[in-house]
């Protein structure tokens, strides 16, 4: 097990209301995990607490020593003073350069390498940003709407590639799309309103790999389960 959150209670600085109350969750196995919930329920906040970017909460998070947990989101930008290719090369450890080339091909970034980040489409921006995180040393990568602007086919291909290339890593995939998390994630943490208990319910997803056929009825059952849980 990589991560276990026990009795997490948190309110925003200077805020009165609780965001989390005695929240419990865990990431037991490597692979794609989903974090789903209505807008404003605190998905990004929980993700940043897990990544260690937010402190000042009550409760306990247990994780192995030296575990690297990175949080990425779709609003991040690359600096504008150099091209995307230069930037990616600069932030890639030497040992990961072959991986960089693979990801560039897999994520269809070849045409963007000579451009500045501001010149890319939203989908290209998301892919370039995700690429640089995948090149870092990590145990868990949180992808907060990281593929929000990528078209469905490419998104499917990217997720499949990630699953194939990083079978031993943990991913926490945050999305508003119930179909998406149901399809791609092995376990889905459904984050609910603070007044509900338990605040997180775990639902099994379909964890699709590549182009494997998906039983439509099973998928719909999963989706319904998630929606009911939320």
């Amino acid at each position: 097990m990589l991560l276990q959150c026990r009795n997490i209670t948190y309110r925003y600085p200077h805020g009165e209301a609780l965001v989390f109350n005695q929240l419990n969750c865990r990431l037991a196995d490597p692979g794609f995990h989903g974090l789903f919930g209505p807008s404003g329920v605190g998905k990004s906040t929980l993700a940043r607490i897990i990544a260690g970017e937010i402190i000042g909460f009550a409760g306990e998070i247990t994780r192995p020593d030296n575990a690297v947990m990175l949080y990425s989101c779709n609003t991040e930008r690359l600096p504008g003073w150099s091209s995307v290719g230069d930037h990616l090369a600069k932030v890639t450890p030497a040992s990961q350069l072959p991986l960089l080339r693979e990801l560039i091909t897999a994520f269809d970034l070849n045409s963007c390498l000579d451009s500045r980040f501001s010149q890319l489409s939203l989908g290209q921006k998301n892919r370039a940003n995700l690429t640089r995180y995948l090149l870092q040393d990590f145990d868990l990568l949180i992808m907060d709407e990281s593929l929000a602007n990528v078209d469905e086919a490419t998104r499917k291909q990217i997720i499949a590639t990630i699953k194939k290339m990083f079978p031993d890593k943990y991913f926490l995939y945050i999305s508003h799309s119930v179909a998406e998390v149901s399809t791609f994630c092995a376990r889905i943490l459904v984050l609910r309103d603070v007044l509900k208990s338990p605040q997180i319910i775990e639902v099994a997803g379909r964890d699709q790999h590549g182009d494997t056929a998906m039983d439509r009825a099973v998928l719909e059952r999963t989706m319904l389960e998630i929606v009911h849980a939320a």
Partner: peptide, 24 residues
Amino acid sequence: SIEHFYVVTGRMRWQLEVKIRAFE
């Protein structure tokens, strides 16, 4: 939106921070 990556990956240096903020 730019600094986050450098901070979480341990790459942030004061020169880079100044460069990002000045450029932006």
